[in-house]
Design a protein around this nucleic acid. Structure first.
Lengths: 329, 329
DNA sequence: TTGAAAGCGCTACCAT
DNA sequence: ATGGTAGCGCTTTCAA
C-alpha cells in the first residue's frame, strides 16, 4: 500500500485520518492507491496502537421483537453523532450469554457498555467493575449500581398497574407472561403484592408459556387461559406484544374488549396507541432511557462528569386507553 | 498478568485458548491471576497476531421493527453454533451508512459478510469484491451477484400478489408503503406491471409516507387514504406491519375487512397468522433465507465449497387468509 | 510536511 | 509441557 503510493506508512496513516496534514500531491497519490487496492485499514492494528476503539457496546436481551427498538434508536442517534460506532450484542435473555457478550465487548475494548438490567452473574459484575469504562445499566433501578443506572422500578410499575385494574372494579385479574426474565418477575411480584393487599378475594392467576414474547404468543396464551380457567375480568400482560395478541384472539372468539375483559399492556410500544381498541398500557419511556443512557456515557467519556446523580429514575406512566374499562360484570 | 502468575505470556495465551495443553498447576495459577485482574485478552492484539477474528458481519437495514427478526435469529443460531461471533450493524436504509458499515466490518476483519439486498454503492461493491471473504447477498435476486446470493424476486412477488387480488375480482387496488427502499420499489414495479397488464380500468394508486415501517404507520396511511381518495377495493401493503395497522384502523372507523376491503401484507411476520382477521400475506421465508445464508458462509469458510449453485431462489408463497376475499362491491 | 524508530499485546514458529 | 523470538499493521513520539 505504502509502496504503491511511494510514501511511508505513517504518511498513509495521516492522510487517512487527517487529510489536511498532508500535502495535496501525496494525498492524491495515496487516495489513488487506497482505491485501487480497496484498502481498508486494519482496525485491530489501529486499536492496538492507539488504544482507542471509537466504539461502544450495547447488550440487549432480544433483537427478535420490537421492545428495544426505540431504545436502540436513541442509542444509535446519540452515539453516531458523537463519533462512536455502536456494537449491538444479543444476550437472548441468558445471563451466560450476557457474560460472554461482556467478555467479547471488553475484549474489543469498547469505550463504554450500555446494558439492559441490573442482575448479572458475579463474574459479569466483576468484569464490568474492573473494566474502568463507563457502564450504564438501564431499565431497572439497582440497589447497588455498578456505575450509572437509568431506569424505573419494575415492581412498583407492576403494582400500580395492577392497582389501576383493581380501581376499575376488577377482582379476577390475571397476569400473562412469556419467558420470565428478571423484569417480568419484578412486575409479577408487584402484581402479587397489589392483589394481596386488595384482599383475599383477589386471587393471583398467572399464565405463562416460556417462549420469547410476540403477538402470536399473546394469542396462544389467551387460548390457554380460556381452555384452563374461567376468563378473568382483567388481564395484565407483561408487554404490549402479548396484550395485542390477547386482544386479537378475544376478538376472534367473540370476547369483547373492554366490555367483557379489560386488557392492560406494558411498555407503550409503537402500535399501542393505534391499535383498535387502542391499548391501555404502562409507558416505560423507552426512547428516553436510551437517550439518557447514551448521553451519560458520552459525558463520562468526554471527562465532563456532570453534576447529575449517578442514578436516574425515569418513572413510568399509565395510559388508560380503550382496552380497559370499569368492571361491568 | 503473566508476571502475577509467574509464567511467560505465551503460556497464558495457551492456557486461555487450549487449557489442556497446559499443566494443571500452571493453569490454576493463571486462572487465579486472570480472575484477580478481571483480565480480558485484547482481541485487537489477538486478531492482529493470528489474523483471525472469529466473527462475521451482518448488515440489516433496520433494527427498529420486526421484519428481520426471524432472519437474525437464524443467523445467530447457525453462526454461534459454528463458533463465530455475530456483529450486527444497522444501515438504517441508507446506502451511505451501508458503505460505512462495510468499511467498519472489513476493518474488523470479519470473516464473512451477510448483507440484505443487492444494490450497493460502487464503492461498496468494490470493497466487497476485493475483500476476498465470502459475501452473501440476501432477500433479492441479483443479475450480477458479488458472490453468493440467496433470495427471491421481489418484483415477481409483487406482481403475483397483485394478480392474486385481481383474481379475487378487485379493480381498485391500492399500494401502500412507508419509506421506499429498493425492495419496496421492486414490489411496486411488480404491482404496476400487473395492473397495467390487467387493463385500463386498473389504475395504480400509491400511498406513501417516507417513515420507517410500523403498525402505527399503517394506521396513519389508511387515514390519509380515506381522506384523499375513495377507498379502494383492495390494498396491497408493502409489509405486514402496514397491513396490520391498516386493518386496525379499518376496524376503528367501521370499514369491514374483507367485506368492504381486502388487505394483503408481505413477509408473513409472526403476528400475521394470529391476527384477527388473520392476515393474508406473501411469505418470504425469512428464517430460511437466514439459515441458508449462514450455512453458505460457514461452508465457504470451512473450505468445503459445496457443489451448490451460487444463487438460490427461495421463492415465496401467497397465504390467502381472512383479510382478503372476493370483491363484493 | 514528512519520516524513522519503537512499541501496542498478542500468537506463530521453532527450540528446549 | 514451556519459553524465546519475531512480527502482525498500525500510531505515537521525536527528528529532520
Amino acid at each position: 500500500m505504502a509502496k504503491l503510493a511511494k510514501v511511508s506508512p505513517i504518511t498513509v496513516s495521516r492522510a487517512l485520518r487527517k487529510p489536511d496534514a498532508v500535502s495535496p500531491e501525496l494525498r492524491q497519490r495515496i487516495d489513488a492507491a487506497v482505491h485501487k487496492l480497496a484498502y481498508v485499514p486494519n482496525l485491530a492494528a489501529s486499536r492496538l496502537a492507539s488504544s482507542r476503539s471509537h466504539s461502544v457496546g450495547v447488550i440487549v436481551p432480544t433483537l427478535y421483537n420490537v421492545i428495544f427498538a426505540e431504545y436502540l434508536r436513541a442509542l444509535h442517534e446519540v452515539f453516531l453523532n458523537s463519533g462512536f460506532q455502536v456494537v449491538v450484542v444479543n444476550s437472548r435473555y441468558s445471563q451466560r450469554e450476557e457474560e460472554q457478550a461482556i467478555r467479547t465487548l471488553l475484549g474489543q475494548r469498547v469505550e463504554a457498555i450500555i446494558i439492559v438490567g441490573v442482575d448479572h452473574t458475579p463474574m459479569s459484575r466483576h468484569l464490568l467493575t474492573q473494566s474502568k469504562i463507563p457502564v450504564i445499566e438501564t431499565f431497572e433501578l439497582a440497589d447497588n449500581p455498578i456505575h450509572i443506572n437509568i431506569g424505573l422500578s419494575q415492581a412498583k410499575a407492576g403494582r400500580d398497574a395492577t392497582q389501576f385494574l383493581i380501581d376499575l372494579g376488577h377482582r379476577k385479574i390475571g397476569f400473562v407472561v412469556g419467558q420470565q426474565d428478571i423484569r417480568a418477575a419484578a412486575r409479577l411480584s408487584g402484581y402479587k403484592e397489589a392483589m394481596e393487599k386488595a384482599g383475599p378475594e383477589y386471587q393471583p392467576m398467572v399464565t405463562s408459556i416460556p417462549q420469547h414474547s410476540s403477538i402470536a404468543l399473546g394469542s396462544t396464551l389467551l387460548v390457554s387461559l380460556v381452555n384452563h380457567n374461567e376468563i378473568p375480568e382483567a388481564l395484565f400482560c407483561n408487554d404490549d406484544n402479548l396484550a395485542m395478541g390477547a386482544i386479537m384472539k378475544c376478538r376472534e372468539i367473540g370476547i369483547k374488549v373492554p366490555q367483557d375483559i379489560s386488557i392492560l399492556g406494558f411498555h407503550d410500544l409503537e402500535f399501542a396507541a393505534s391499535a383498535s381498541p387502542s391499548l391501555s398500557t404502562v409507558s416505560t419511556r423507552l426512547y428516553e432511557i436510551g437517550k439518557l443512557a447514551a448521553e451519560a456515557a458520552v459525558n463520562e467519556l468526554s471527562g465532563k462528569r456532570l453534576d447529575v446523580s449517578t442514578q436516574i429514575d425515569v418513572g413510568y406512566e399509565i395510559f388508560a386507553r380503550q382496552s380497559t374499562g370499569k368492571n361491568k360484570r
